[in-house]
Design a protein around this nucleic acid. Structure first.
Lengths: 355, 355
DNA sequence: CTGTTAGCGCATTCAC
DNA sequence: GTGAATGCGCTAACAG
């Protein structure tokens, strides 16, 4: 175990004072070319890691980070992401970071706009974005770029932006897995239906499209191309759905599997249950409370999850690394594992973040 | 944001000095009953958390922790656990912990004994154990108990011991999932074979038994009880296996699914491949390099994983929490999520620990 | 531009 | 038993 090298050591080696070393380490400016050179030469030789703890201790200034995501309750998808944020902030509560949330209504572009404009006014040190509306997000990001404020994404990364980190999922792979699961759970001469929600939300549609593409590709590759049917339902008017769904299944009795390409699988499951339909397998997304309940009682056969808590946790952690330790990654994009959850492994997916 | 309360504040509130507060916080003794009372009364009111960083900074003494697991290469199961250890030690490298490894040969009880006796001599502050041989482990633990040295388990917890933490998996649930997967992947009138290794290793056998029980329970509950066959192969003599396996399948042509109840699925997959058998689905355990390769090329249909890296990471983290922050959990046992991996989500299970 | 110095909150040590 | 003093490595503010 080599002794940890300290700022003072570097100062001595470079023939300057500790203050100067600190200045070059943090790019604070006010350093002559020759001093900076000298320090950097030493830095290149020894591998110095500064001590997180002493650094945090003496750090006066706190960091301010802004977080914006769709508003959601505890058991919902976005709620889990927020849980991850909170968990990370707790874990790093000794670092003085003050965090402000800007929640918006994911069905209302105006609420999104007003949340986003609030952020710019705050002049935070970093921003974490859970995006829904593409053009609004792109606009926000370009304002942040101008202001030199770094930002990260959770759930999905938006194109034409330059985040310092992003945590998302390969939606194409998700679709393929949904296909694999449903194919294996249904007779090979039966059909599988894709259910998507009718509502707008330009980005979600995007995610959903990728999922559908992955699904179709899988179906093609396994020779069940002709056995796919499409249907849609409304996420907002549960009453309407019931007839839509039952009518559809009556009209298509060969459908034995349903792929719900978003987190609303429980809606379909509840309808099937209410109508005594038991031989149709449902696969859906996200471990929400409602979906969890349906997985328990067999209404849903399997769920795909994208580690929302871990996404939130990692985003905050990345922000801290970025702000305090100036860490910069070459490729900021991280794809989360895709967890497949059946009734049997459900109990063990409660807390994904270590404690 | 309420201002963080400090030791000094508590001291003032309790009418004692900071030194005294520190003494009661750390149970160092040498505190009069009245002082202790006063401090504890204050402590009960305010919720004090001490500052990890300042604490770490002023901590003189380093901690020594000993780790003992079966020796393994990088792509193997135990290798992944060790990766988790290393990762945690790196993450907490600012805390002065010196870690010694005591690897043993999991097939050789003598090597295990000698490793274990080495540990006792070291007088470490904490021990992390990856157990294989039950009675040796129990003996080690009772020696540690006597010496007042806390210990944790990874992979599985051994009965009649009192670890401060353990990270393992519900093997019964694993077995059930294997059952579910194989049932859905094979025709309902076909049979499924359980392959287990012939070698001894008293603990593994235990794990394996639980898995088999879970598997059987699932088969019973889904009405395929009569369609289970058992077979065994050797983990040590690959040559022998080939005939064993092909003979078995020839004798049991109705077998269309194989459950390999340990991480040696790749051995069977390679045999099937070499013999041109393609309609038999294999499900096995652990994301080792070999299994990963077979999952890629379709030789293995699915793998069950138990987050080995996270187990290792969490064990070290728990040890640190225990040593530095004196955290004590009422129930130290944690069951890891059971990940189900197909070819499609394989690429995203490379790094499970956040970075 | 640069060196020096005063804390940061806690653990430890040493007088009392 | 207890309070006060010292130092951990680093940041920030100040004096040159």
């Amino acid at each position: 175990m080599a002794k940890q090298i300290k700022i003072k050591d570097i100062a001595q080696m470079a023939g300057v004072s500790a203050g100067t070393v600190d200045r070059v380490l943090h790019n604070r400016g006010n350093v002559s070319y020759s001093s900076r050179e000298a320090v950097e030469r030493v830095l290149a030789d020894v591998d110095y890691r500064y001590n997180i703890h002493t650094s945090a201790v003496s750090l006066k200034k706190g960091y301010r980070i802004a977080i914006t995501t769709p508003a959601a309750g505890k058991g919902e998808y976005w709620g889990s992401i927020v849980e991850g944020f909170r968990h990370a902030l707790e874990e790093y509560s000794d670092i003085n970071i003050d965090c402000r949330y800007f929640f918006y209504n994911q069905f209302d572009v105006y609420s999104c706009r007003s949340a986003f404009s609030g952020i710019a006014e705050e002049h935070p040190d970093a921003v974490i974005i859970g995006p829904t509306f593409i053009s609004e997000t792109v606009a926000l990001c370009s304002r942040l770029d101008e202001a030199g404020i770094p930002y990260a994404f959770v759930d999905s990364a938006i194109e034409d932006t330059r985040p310092f980190a992003s945590y998302s999922t390969d939606q194409h792979a998700c679709g393929a897995i949904i296909g694999r699961l449903l194919c294996s759970m249904t007779p090979s001469d039966s059909s599988i239906a894709i259910f998507s929600t009718r509502r707008v939300g330009n980005r979600r549609a995007n995610n959903s499209l990728e999922r559908m593409k992955g699904f179709m590709d899988y179906m093609d590759s396994s020779g069940r191309t002709g056995h796919v049917k499409e249907a849609s339902f409304s996420a907002l008017d549960p009453e309407d759905n019931e007839n839509d769904v039952t009518d559809f299944l009556r009209a298509n009795p060969d459908v034995k599997g349903i792929a719900v390409m978003n987190s609303r699988g429980y809606i379909i499951a509840d309808i099937l249950k209410a109508n005594g339909i038991e031989d149709v397998k449902i696969v859906s997304f996200d471990l929400t409370h409602s979906n969890s309940r349906c997985l328990q009682d067999g209404g849903i056969a399997a769920l795909l999850c994208q580690r929302p808590q871990l996404q939130g946790f990692n985003a905050v952690k990345a922000a801290i690394n970025r702000l305090i330790y100036k860490n910069v990654h070459d490729n900021p994009h991280r794809l989360m594992p895709i967890d497949i959850i059946f009734r049997e492994n459900l109990p063990y997916y409660r807390e994904i973040i270590p404690d």
